[in-house]
Design a protein around this nucleic acid. Sequence first.
DNA 1: TCTGGGGTCCTAGGACCC
DNA 2: TCTGGGGTCCTAGGACCC
Length: 421
Amino acid sequence: MFGLIDGNNFYASCERVFRPDLRNKPVVVLSNNDGCAIARSNEAKALGIPMGAPAFQYQQLFLQNQVTVFSANFVLYGDISNRMVSICRRYCKDLEVYSIDESFMDFHGYDYVNLQKHCEELREKIFLGLDIPTSIGLAPTKTLAKIANKIAKKFPEKTNAVYLLDSPTKIEKALKWFPLEDIWGIGRRNFDKFSKIGVKTAWDFCQLPEAFVQKEMGILGLRMHKELLGEKQYDLSDMRPKKGIATTRTFDKKTNQLCVLKERIASFAFKSSEKLRRQQSCCRFVTVFIMTDRFQRDLHQYSNSFTITLPNPSSSAIEISKAAQLALDKIFLPQFQYKKAGVMLSEFVPDTQRLTSLFDEDFFAKHQPIMQIMDKMNKRLGADKIKLASMDIQKTWKMNQKNLSPRHSTDLQQIIIVKAE
DNA sequence: TCTGGGGTCCTAGGACCC
DNA sequence: TCTGGGGTCCTAGGACCC
């Protein structure tokens, strides 16, 4: 059996941990720049605030209904997520962290364990320790476990928020009830295509011939079909290092100034290189992209990217930042107003297994000591204490974060003090 | 005025090889 | 008029996930 555990309305629940006064009240968490809603409490969902709702369109509704709005605090969510995973590992050794709020658990060999009780206990432990409500689905395949999880979430009273899909009868009943568009792997495109021919539920989808599904959706669709019928196609995936690392941002205001973009690109390159060094890899490719405001349809649109191949694999912030500047020079056109840009790194090798050229200078080796010191200092003193001179030294760039909660669980300066009266 | 930021995998088609 | 058959590799773009 596979288990899938996830945090209910995860970011909103994280914010409530330190704001118990917000229980049973509408809470919304906004994306970077306070752009759009990326998490909603049940009460906020009931007000009709959809996922991805642009904040500016909903100001009125927020005010009228006393919705508490937070700016995204990813440091907090990441920390709570790590704590959640470490509790899960005590209940299942084979675990795959699928996203910040979701983990798959492989319960093979638990034949003599009552999984329902086992998982109910796990939920309680997380709730007692972290104050985060969770839901757990259990089923013979990952795709079915996803469905079981949604049933657990939808009917918490009946299921104790743990639902076991173990018999063919229960599976059939669940599939007949489960809407096609909510299946893991069915997106907008496929939903439109299949609903046109009358396929409305997971069960309808299962009745389609395999050949037809493969023709319409390719190999992924075929695997999904089999998984829904209980034939395992996916195991837990191992924790491979990432294949691409990106730092991208939408700007507060548009700009057509090359010097402004240069500074942004330097900062994004620096951030990306930090993530790369954290996974102890070097990259070969540095890609830069810039684009205009896609929402302003009346303005001329431009979007372009350029990739630089480094002579030797590197994770040096200095070298990657310089390469990024070169790439920017290749695509910058002064007649456009830019709204978004980013730096992406790819083609990784572990930094102990680099093949270096005989003829090109090896900046990775040359810069490694200083990179190590920079990373150490930034870790101890707080992000961005040590920067490249090409970065924003004056700190003129600030994200819109009007309602950022404190980092209670990761910063000693911001720790909660409990007074005994 | 204001609309996020990461990732993964697959496929079709072109360019090239013999 | 008639113009093979089998590969590989790379890339851009699509579709999906959270």
